[in-house]
Write a protein that binds this DNA or RNA. Structure first.
Lengths: 243, 243
DNA sequence: ACAAAATTTTAGACTAATCTAAAAATATAT
DNA sequence: ATATATTTTTAGATTAGTCTAAAATTTTGT
């Protein structure tokens, strides 16, 4: 039999819950999560600082816990942190975040393409798989999947060096009357939203022509794949990414 | 964006590092590991109690830590524990252990069959993947792999209900002169042992005929696949499983 | 510009899982 | 059979990550 200490590891007296190594720095599972969330929220806020409260909301912890963690991440030089002013990632922090996001999105491709999961079922599983620590595994998985550039939600997959494929999506809600666009992604990944799209047969890659924009509620009348008439609320239109 | 609390979860004030749920009981990552190791050591010791020191050795912790954990696992009724007398698994504990072992071995098949890893490279990665908590994922992975009964080391894979395929392997060291056998598994998974076998082209499923057993050191002279003469030490012969 | 509201940080406490050192129980050897 | 050695457990401490409550800072509204 051959065992090894798998994901808990004691360094000196210190217990780390799942480690990965970047430049010989130990990164805990929890730290990876914070960095990933900071990356995604910064991206969503066009590069602006992310606030403690926003982080508390998305890590599902309390602001006090976030403050503690921010102090720690700042000490390790993963984030730029001025008290009360929110945070952004340093270069080092961004590389770690991109590594986690890369794994998350590759696993999502695996779950959909190889195991036949729906795009509404994969998030929570990928949330676990994204922390598996093996460079070689990530590389081989990437090759096995055919080096995909985008995940099943249309999100770009960073390459091994952390470089993101460039994307220039617009929201469907920004598209004007009679324009034809291709559905490229979603900006919300909640199962209920994705299932709503499934019901209307709106899938990645489908054609959408804007036939009508309601004056009343800004809902959209669409022609799907030059065949089917359908209507989506403005809420849906704001979360559909097209080009 | 859609986040969820992935693998750390607070119940009341309690922090769990990675949870899985069996009968609504929360099982931490660490508990899963202890149960798995108790299962494997009990199996190896023909159903006899496992000692605290043996567990400390295999969990890579100290005996004092093991004692603490045993108390906890006994409280939750995962193990039968009489102080100073070692432990065995209860039915509940065994089911959890078998679930972890099932995932470990399925992932090993995936790593070798789909990603092209060598059998000497997969243990540490599977050690992480075995804790991914999703019934549906395990089921789909199992189907994707063609419902394998054995992993790349020849170890049996328990089914979804925890039932192990029955195996009746013998050690090569128990085989008598001139017998022909098929290589079915290994009882040690260390990379160095597996690489040693690779060098000699000893693989799962190969034919081995015992041509010679040295009086001096009990090493074995073998005929591999009716073609190649080779010699293995008694140490190797004891860890090759055949039938 | 200042008071009130909101946000963020600090202080102090808790849990899981570990540790070391010491005490208790069991096993071994003469 | 008893002293010694080994193994196991207990006691007390530590760390990461969380919590609540209170204090500090920033933002907002008049």
């Amino acid at each position: 039999m051959y065992f090894c200490k798998p994901r808990l590891s004691a360094i000196g007296n210190r217990l780390f819950f799942k480690l990965s190594t970047v430049d010989n720095q130990l990164i805990s599972f929890t730290e990876e999560n914070y960095l990933k969330i900071i990356y995604l929220l910064t991206e969503r806020h066009n590069g602006n600082e992310v606030s403690t409260n926003k982080l508390a909301e998305h890590t599902q912890t309390k602001a006090a816990s976030v403050s503690d963690m921010l102090r720690k991440l700042a000490e390790k030089n993963y984030i730029n942190y001025r008290k009360y002013q929110g945070v952004t990632l340093t270069e080092a922090g961004e590389q770690i975040a991109l590594g986690v996001i890369r794994k998350h999105r590759l696993w999502e491709v695996f779950l959909v393409e190889k195991l036949g999961f729906g795009w509404d079922e994969i998030h929570d599983i990928a949330e676990q798989l994204e922390h598996i620590d093996s460079k070689e595994l990530t590389k081989r998985l990437d090759d096995f999947l055919g080096n995909p550039q985008f995940d099943p939600h249309g999100d770009p997959i960073p390459d091994a060096k952390g470089k993101m494929p460039s994307v220039s999506y617009q929201k469907l809600s920004e598209i004007t009357l009679n324009q034809s666009v291709v559905m490229m992604g979603v900006s919300v990944h909640s199962p209920s939203f994705l299932q709503h799209l499934d019901k209307q047969q709106i899938t990645l890659g489908c054609d959408l022509k804007v036939l009508e924009i309601s004056d009343f509620d800004k809902s959209y009348g669409l022609l799907l794949n030059n065949k089917i008439r359908l209507f989506v609320s403005n809420e849906v239109a704001r979360n559909l990414l097209v080009c």
